[in-house]
Design a protein around this nucleic acid. Structure first.
Lengths: 247, 247
DNA sequence: TCGAATTTGTGCGTATGTATC
DNA sequence: GGATACATACGCACAAATTCG
């Protein structure tokens, strides 16, 4: 079976973009022009271009034209073994090093552990936990969403019970846990990717349908998991960098 | 400005899928049904469903219906500090541990270093290099593509010049470089994600437009970078797991 | 086995609105 | 303001796959 026409047109244009004959910023033929060249109806050309837009290869500007997307300079988000060496939060250390201004907003509330989170933390479903939602901002632009859970059987009644209140606020998890004698020794990060949900796209000022990477992070002491988080990062603006010692 | 209707319909369905009211395998209303429910034309319902299909939430079967996709069990691809402790290739160690059968195909050729690769390896553009393309198979299913470059000023004339020939074939890069006295001490992996190119989708037996993670890997000795690779992994089947010591 | 009904995939022509130049 | 270009929407038509009596 032959590919449908709109696929064939999209394939032609995609190939031209990938091999550089349509460089970033170049303007695609208008859909009238495409329809004429391929001898198809206007609508078919629309479908072809819409497909490329959904794939992120081009960006349509109403009234102006459709252009090959500039791949915006990705910032690097280091997640290496050495990032937590100094005090403060890893995110702040990151942006400071790059000469940018990292801030965040958050809110915490008590929750009952859901099955997925309970399993990661090795606690029972329904156990009490502290759930904190963060939005990280880089020069006022939202760049990362994070939802974290800590088991209250560890932190209840301690000065670090609320991650962002009291004398130990705004430090990283590693430092905060150290205050109550929990020495975090390792973190396991599971990285995958998917398209952004509508709510996430809005919060991150990202394209709806844009790709996000998700990190499922679990901090461990020698004895047990003590914190877990779901982290959402738009691929448009950030790449993850892992530096790993060998042997 | 209000969202277009087809977006609103897609948002409703997407939310229902994410919160579980439309579980994996569930059948979506047909486009006639959707058009009736939302009091829109047939075409608008088609666009809404097409959007969800492009995002990978649903799968349409012609003549039957449109169904919420089963998320196939993601395999985990460990990229931790300890993976290279034993001999052989990391990929083989991985599949062996999971009780599966890892094999691969590859071909090597001499190339002149391109600017992007030359920069990673700290050599001059146009310097001679050995470029090897791998397709990794897991129980005969292609799961990872990798293109690797090694500078020939290091390996020319040595027994490891061709990665997959001679007495040291089919070992990992770390072991092979050790043969010529290059002790690899660390690797830097930059992780990002994008939609698959048509050729990649075909090679990986993946959905065209499906999401792949890409890893740009550089192996370093204490002195210099000695190998770099571009690795492409379909998100459908694999998640990356980084285990990172803290402090 | 056949055929009718259903459902998706694709395509055409048209219309209206809005953004850009 | 006018020409151009994209965004959305309507309605219709037919092919191909599937389902089911």
């Amino acid at each position: 079976m032959p590919s449908p026409t709109y696929q064939r047109i999209a394939d032609d244009l995609r190939a031209a973009i990938v091999d550089g004959s349509l460089p970033p910023g170049a303007k695609l033929p208008s859909r009238h022009e495409l329809a004429r060249q391929y001898e198809v109806s206007d609508r078919v050309a629309v479908e072809a271009v819409r497909l490329l837009a959904a794939e992120g290869f081009v960006e349509a500007r109403s009234g102006s034209g459709t252009y090959v997307r500039q791949r915006p300079q990705q910032q690097r988000l280091a997640r290496s073994w050495y990032t937590d060496r100094r005090g403060g939060s890893p995110f702040r250390a990151e942006t400071d090093a790059a000469g940018r201004t990292g801030t965040w907003e958050c809110s915490s509330k008590r929750v009952a552990m859901t099955p997925a989170v309970a399993e990661r933390l090795g606690v029972a479903v329904g156990d009490p936990g502290m759930c904190t939602r963060y939005t990280f901002l880089d020069d006022s632009e939202p760049v990362t969403l994070s939802t974290s859970w800590e088991p209250l059987d560890l932190t209840e009644g301690t000065p670090i019970m609320f991650p962002e209140e009291g004398p130990h606020a705004a430090r990283g998890v590693v430092d905060r846990m150290a205050v109550i004698g929990q020495q975090i020794t390792r973190t396991v990060e599971t990285v995958t990717a998917r398209t952004a949900l509508a709510a996430e796209a809005e919060q991150l000022h990202a394209r709806p349908g844009g790709i996000v990477m998700t990190i499922t992070r679990v901090y461990h002491t020698a004895d047990r998991p003590v914190e877990t988080a779901d982290i959402v990062i738009p691929v448009e603006r950030y790449a993850l960098v892992y530096e790993v010692p060998v042997r």
